[in-house]
């Protein structure tokens, strides 16, 4: 039996996951907890958020996120991909920043829009 805390929503249900012939999850307040409990034992995944460089925008960094959760062991490698990126404004929210994170088929996308400004401040 494994005790987990569901991180899918802020409620933070205390889950119990029992692995027998099938995986049985209890303690969840909704079904997303069941899915989380199962995944967390088999293939834990996380959404990763960070920033990349941007030119000609209001700030020097623009926030990005993985379009869906990626496997936990890939987090470090995924972060390294971002170091090489430099965008130029304008950027639209949802615009693809890295096409495919380490063969997962999951992209990094911009998590806000930034207009072009003539002289970048701050």
């Amino acid at each position: 039996m494994t005790k987990l805390i569901c991180i899918v929503c802020p409620k933070g249900c205390h889950l119990q996951v029992d692995v027998g012939d099938t995986i049985v999850v209890t303690g969840h307040a909704c079904n997303r907890g069941v899915e989380y409990g199962k995944n967390e034992l088999k293939n834990p995944v996380r959404v990763i958020t960070s920033t990349v460089r941007i030119e000609n925008a209001i700030y020097r960094r623009i926030p990005v996120k993985t379009a869906s959760p990626i496997p936990k062991p890939l987090i470090r490698k995924a972060m390294l991909l971002l170091d090489k990126i430099s965008l130029a404004a304008p950027v639209e929210v949802g615009q693809i920043v890295v096409e495919d994170i380490c063969g997962t088929g999951i992209p990094f996308v911009a998590s806000r829009s930034m207009e072009r400004v003539e002289k970048a401040e701050g």
């Binding site: 991180i7 802020p10 933070g12 996380r46």
Partner: peptide, 11 residues
């Protein structure tokens, strides 16, 4: 929040 203890510290 408990979820932040898990995904920010434990992870």
């Amino acid at each position: 929040l408990t979820r932040n203890i898990v995904q920010c510290l434990h992870d």
